[in-house]
Design a binder for these strands. Structure first.
Lengths: 149, 149
DNA sequence: TACAATTCAATTGCACACAATTGAATTGTG
DNA sequence: CACAATTCAATTGTGTGCAATTGAATTGTA
């Protein structure tokens, strides 16, 4: 009689959904690196810029909500992007608590180089179109749960 | 005539697969935190312990391959787990370059508390069983690509 | 209107991640 | 055997992430 499962099976990494999620996320970000190096951005800086390329101007709270990041992560990162001249940081007149982040002309120009990246990355994936769509749908379903709070 | 797409659409966060992966990974790890706090482990320490609960003894290279982590991350983390008494770190006799990490009795005992965690986490997910299986399969397909190198 | 509660970004402290380098140990090769 | 190349873990330096706290600004309420 074979007896190869036990109450400890749940503790095997291969039986957990969180681990491949965690590992995959880091592997994909790593795949972006050579491309992002060309425009001197880290992955986190890149997704902040993506929001600005869409919105032109957002406050830190909105940015954090979009990216699931808090001010502890964003504040130093935004200061760095400001020092690179890609954005400006100014307090709102209406409410001095709010910090408004605005794309500069240099930031806008970076978009021209960045637009090449998604295409280059797309070729790196071994998923079918259907798998991509499925993965996307499932991940956003999980994220939706987080957003509800 | 509506003209609401452009060559910049690829730069919208919602059109990228990497972002929900990155965000989801962090959100799920965050969901583990209250449970891991009870046994005083971080998520990364937890997955290292999971390997040891399975293997009893591994070297740093193997551990890194299993977890997609390098010695820069593992060395300080293993020293911390050693100082907690959960594992020992010894050089291999056969090859002094190799560091062998071995589970201690205390580490083995922690397994009894850890075994409750996966069950508690499972209840936190809003995915169907099918979605869970699908997600798992797709993520490991992507990871397989990384493993090939 | 006072003033308590709330809402912001910033700060602090800790724990990863990871690229790049270092230095010791081992292996491969002439 | 000598010694160059390789393989390890450790170290260094930079950049996140995030919980918890702080302090200024605003809002809600007695």
């Amino acid at each position: 009689m074979i007896m190869d499962d036990s109450k400890y099976d749940v503790l095997k990494i291969e039986n957990q959904l969180c681990f491949p999620l965690y590992a995959c996320s880091r592997e994909i970000v790593k795949r972006y690196k050579p491309f992002l190096d060309q425009i001197d951005l880290t992955y986190t800086q890149y997704i902040v810029m993506m929001v600005l390329w869409e919105e032109k101007s957002v406050n830190v709270k909105e940015l954090g909500a979009r990216l699931y990041l808090d001010s502890g992560t964003l504040t130093p990162l935004l200061k760095k992007l400001e020092s690179k001249g890609l954005l400006t940081r100014t307090r709102s007149d209406k409410d001095e608590r709010n910090l408004i982040v605005t794309l500069t002309e240099a930031g806008e120009q970076l978009k021209e180089q960045a637009v090449e990246i998604p295409m280059q990355i797309a070729g790196c994936t071994n998923l079918t179109a259907e798998e991509g769509v499925m993965l996307y749908r499932i991940l956003y379903k999980m994220l939706g749960q987080s957003a509800e709070k």
